[in-house]
């Protein structure tokens, strides 16, 4: 993967709109910008509720992204 790209994992109902194996986007600095870009590229995500995890921790406010971090989009959990 090129340095200026980021890999994003997506799960659950989000995979009706993006690839379940994940996808790449141009690097963005923080999670608020990430959300804006996601909504531009995948308008179907706008109506869905999801949290963002950075390096496996859910972030609740705008968070700076470092190169090579792991981003995951997590809709409400429905295990069990």
């Amino acid at each position: 993967m090129e340095k200026n790209r980021i890999k994003i994992l997506a799960f659950g109902q989000l995979t009706d709109h993006v690839a379940s194996s994940g996808f790449e986007m141009d690097f963005v600095q923080d999670t608020d910008t990430l959300k804006e870009r996601l909504y531009e590229n995948y308008p179907g995500l706008k109506n869905l509720h999801f949290s963002i995890a950075v390096d496996k921790k859910i972030v609740n406010s705008n968070t700076h992204l470092a190169a090579g971090c792991e981003i995951a989009l997590l809709p409400p959990f429905s295990g069990g």
Binding site: G12, A72, L74, P75, F77, S78, G79, G80
Partner: peptide
């Protein structure tokens, strides 16, 4: 049920 990142 609430906290494990699992989807059905």
């Amino acid at each position: 049920k609430k906290e494990l990142p699992v989807w059905g």
